[in-house]
Design a protein around this nucleic acid. Structure first.
Lengths: 202, 202
DNA sequence: ACCTGAACACCGTTCAAGT
DNA sequence: ACCTGAACACCGTTCAAGT
């Protein structure tokens, strides 16, 4: 990559970060190019689709989420690990208002530049969920696809001005729906998971 | 209202119903006018905003939902009444893909043409929720605002191609989160969880 | 009263022409 | 190699001119 191209790439990305933070993930790309003092074609050359731009903007955060999931698997017991990760997923999508829609769309479109990142994120969630299920602290009738959908729903609520104030509370409600068993949170590694996986609720 | 105006109004509304059913609530209004063989100004005269058009399209369904809520309060016990109404709310928003966003936005904007209908809908839900709470079958730490948000979240999931197939299941999960106490009610259908408490399926 | 559609200010996307 | 911006096909919204 030529030096001037690299410079343009970085500069457009920086400006895009500002503009999309202000106006959301569906901000005008024309406006981004304008504020970056760059031809419209230059923006499209470096980021052929909006998804490509979003992926570049979010890559670091995606990686952090994956790393955090791996870390939580070692450092925390199943229940608080899952809860903490859910919370951070929703906070992550709040980085750019409206970004959850393209993410949800991308997860079933392998051509999308966001596809791989979303699939990886879902896989990390699936692992944390399975671990919680094996420990008998998560309901057994949901899977990683459901979990990703619930995270997306919460992220969407977090993006709507009228529901955002309740997002934390609704997160707790939905976490309650996912998690079962004893309320005790900050325990160490799961002691003895029930053999049958059957957990009484209520 | 003059006869020709009335005719235009009705015709535009009928065409809009077709177009928005096909393309979602954010379809091109220009396209509606075109397919209705009507000047663009005529459309805007009768429906000054997109919300006004949506309100006109949905009025009947809004009324039905309100009537149903009142009916369920008399005919069914608290738990199945709330569950049935939730289900119908989500089905209702599925009438036009993407209509839940303007609805959620409208509920805090009194100027919106959708405002009154959404507030009424939320109030109906609040009544059914309070009734369930007083009967001890719904968790007491949520209110009508939360309920409306949860319905909206489910409606949104129902609109996304990748999550729509799970919408019914996720509705059950969230219904479980809202509802508490004994699963079996003395009458009516409550198709969510099996009597023993935890669903097998694993 | 009501209808019409041109006009204006925006998009996203492409691509011939420049450096 | 890379950049530029005009060109094209779309929007939503308004409003002078027509009937």
């Amino acid at each position: 990559m030529r030096a001037d191209a690299r410079r343009n790439y970085d500069h457009v990305l920086a400006v895009a970060r500002t503009v999309l933070t202000e106006q959301g993930a569906d901000a005008s790309l024309r406006d981004v190019a304008r504020r970056a003092d760059v031809g419209l074609g230059t923006l499209y050359r470096h980021f052929p689709t909006r998804e490509a731009l979003l992926e570049a903007l979010l890559r670091t955060s995606f990686d952090k989420l994956a790393a955090e999931a791996a870390e939580l698997e070692l450092s925390s017991s199943p229940r608080p690990a899952l809860v903490a990760w859910l919370r951070d997923c929703v906070a992550f999508t709040h980085e750019y208002r409206g970004v959850i829609s393209p993410m949800v769309a991308a997860i079933e479109e392998p051509e999308s530049a966001l596809h791989a990142s979303c699939v990886t994120m879902r896989a990390a969630g699936t692992r944390l969920l399975s671990r919680a299920q094996n420990a008998g602290v998560a309901r057994s009738d949901i899977d990683g696809v459901d979990l990703f959908a619930l995270i997306a729903a919460l992220a969407w609520l977090n993006d709507q001005p009228s529901t955002a104030p309740r997002a934390c509370h609704l997160m707790d409600v939905i976490a309650d729906a996912i998690l079962t068993g004893p309320v005790r949170d900050d325990d160490d590694v799961a002691p003895s998971p029930p053999p049958t996986g059957q957990s009484p609720r209520g």
